[in-house]
Design a protein around this nucleic acid. Structure first.
Lengths: 221, 221
DNA sequence: CATCCTGCGTGCAGCTACTGTAATTTTATT
DNA sequence: AATAAAATTACAGTAGCTGCACGCAGGATG
């Protein structure tokens, strides 16, 4: 990921990372025990042994400590691979891209899971999470458009190309949300890969459905 | 509350409604001019000529004044109609249901539009909105399940029935989001009904795509 | 080793969103 | 007109969050 293989960390950086990790962990633990609303920033600071001011230097916001580092944007190499991807399965590739970013972003799956739990049961955090995702989708739409261009499709030749890209991203997002939900409510026994494929298949089946629109009047009474 | 069931709108109720509408309007106007973050509750109170405490009696939260009355849940009659709907087009019917609720909920389309504009450009509000929608989707999923049952399908005969319902709701939500976005960025010239049908068709096309999954390894590198 | 200096943590003062409480005013009822 | 009920208000207090200025330790330079 970085230019140098490893050692670039000084004592400073290491301490910093430790403090941040400590705060995040404390925040999660406290929230899972007392509920997000009942946890004050001061509590987290006590547990992490820093001043309140320092806390805000790290996260800027209370929520920040619970949500972890901002948005998982894939590495450039993978992005290029996606754009060049000749495969016709945009949806599958998109889902793969997002998943990859998610995985190599958080080393500890335990943290990831409990964070997910907390977010799931806390509307306020869920809102923030959605916001982040929305912002991410913005960039992904541009990516898909690039891919389309790489495949020789242009706005001129295909009028609704941008819509198509946006819809693809939207659907990929739906698959991710659906899978997450199923995964963290424990309704699935199997590998994440399986789950994702299962979700995509299900989506295709539902979307295909029967009659596209019986008379059209149904849509807007 | 009172012993009499009849004419519940006296002077009281009318004043109340006026105050609330005034506050909402003031909030929207102020935010569109100065940006959401730069509008304080006190400003809104000044414009609406009430105390800060009263403001919070009405909305409970600053965001409330900008988002309007909570979630548009359809009337019982329409719900029943949806459940009994023999039509196979679950998606279309769902979209129709949501749309109907949206329309007869806010009489003034001008308010609705500017509110939409504001939400669109304000991450914080967008997050809240998404949260509300998510909560709504919860109930809709149950509805779809009822409909399935009315069609004689049970969890026993069809293992993934609940998943199917959830996915249908998720997809309907995607269609709504997509349409909203297109509608309020002005990228569409035509009736809302047309737009919705167009969106559904597009979704079906993208979802269908080509190969479901070349090898599966793509999904989780 | 001495020196600078830069990044980081801290206290403090202050703003804004929000809540509880009790008093005051306004509307409804008899 | 008297009284009950409800709405609105002022006031005080809590929690999230920010700008500012100071001090200290890590790291670079000579």
């Amino acid at each position: 990921m970085t230019s140098k293989p490893a050692v670039d960390d000084g004592l400073r950086a290491r301490k910093r990372a430790a403090t941040q990790a400590g705060l995040e962990q404390a925040a999660l633990a406290l929230a899972l025990e007392h509920g997000y609303e009942n946890v004050t920033v001061d509590m987290i600071c006590d547990a992490g042994m820093v001043s309140q001011r320092t806390f805000f230097n790290y996260f800027g916001t209370k929520e920040g400590a619970f949500l972890g580092t901002p948005p998982p944007m894939p590495a450039d190499a993978e992005l290029a691979r996606f754009v060049q991807g000749a495969g016709a399965d945009v949806l599958g590739d998109l889902v793969g891209l997002i998943t990859a970013a998610l995985v190599d972003q958080e080393p500890d799956p335990g943290i990831l899971r409990s964070r997910r739990m907390l977010i799931e049961r806390t509307p306020e955090l869920l809102g923030r999470e959605n916001t982040r995702i929305t912002e991410l989708e913005e960039s992904l739409t541009l990516l898909v458009l690039e891919r389309f261009h790489a495949q020789g499709r242009s706005e001129e030749s295909t009028p609704g190309l941008e819509d198509e890209a946006r819809m693809a991203v939207t659907l990929a997002g739906s698959v991710m949300r659906f899978s997450m939900q199923k995964w963290f409510t424990g309704g699935f026994t199997g590998s994440p890969g399986e789950l994702l494929r299962h979700s995509i298949a299900l989506m295709r089946r539902i979307a295909a459905a029967e009659n596209p629109a019986p008379e059209g009047a149904r849509v807007r009474p």
